[in-house]
Amino acid sequence: MTFFGQGLQQAWDLLLHNNAALLQVLVVTLKVAGLSTAIAVVVGVPAGVVLGLGRFRGVGVLRVLANVGLGLPPVVVGVTLALLMFPAAPLGRFHLIFTLRGVYVAQTVLAVPIIIALTSSAVRDVPRSLLDQARAYGASRRALGALATREARVGILAAVIAAVGSGLSEVGAVVLVGGNIEGVDQTLASAALERVNAGDFAGGLAIGILLLALILVITAALTWLQFGNRQEARVKAS
């Protein structure tokens, strides 16, 4: 209990006395989670809708691959990307290794399959009768996609929550690609790892507590977006 008490005390001290450094890590963390999720949404939601609605040959295989992507080991992704980003490697000319841009790329690679797989699953839960009726009234593919996206919005927001959560707490790929450089690409999760590796368990716990608080706040906001309107509709209906 003393250990956890120290962690809480240090977390509090960090908030009060180490504002500049903490703020920098916090900003990097939010940038990594926000940008990777935004790119993943732009790429992954349309892809997930196509996989969810698709009736083309090979769609089943693509759905399996998307689900496999959910279980991508971050360390494997990190090592693979790092090897590709070294100066002599195919992506070397983009100068991504040990940079924040490289971390964005790594986290996006992890977030895209999450969005695709969960969006596809949510779209497949949209009642067939509604989609068939839309087709029967001559809805275009674009209109059908818009309908499916809107109807599956609760599930798609769950995908966004999962991607944001992954972005906030990711360590393996971020450290391997970014190098965990303080003041450059260090995130809250990788900072906590660094403290633990240095034997500063209370410090690691303190950052962990801050990270949990951040996840709680962001997830609560997204969950409100996810279900808030529906509760309002139920109240109106009753």
Binding site: P127, S129, L130, D132, Q133, A134, Y137, L147, R150
Partner: peptide, 21 residues
């Protein structure tokens, strides 16, 4: 069609949606 599939919107919005399609 046989099954009345309606979107999660108001009744009027559902009819307007069919008109849009």
């Amino acid at each position: 069609l046989q099954t009345p599939g309606l979107a999660r919107r108001s009744v009027r919005a559902n009819v307007e949606l069919a008109l849009a399609w």
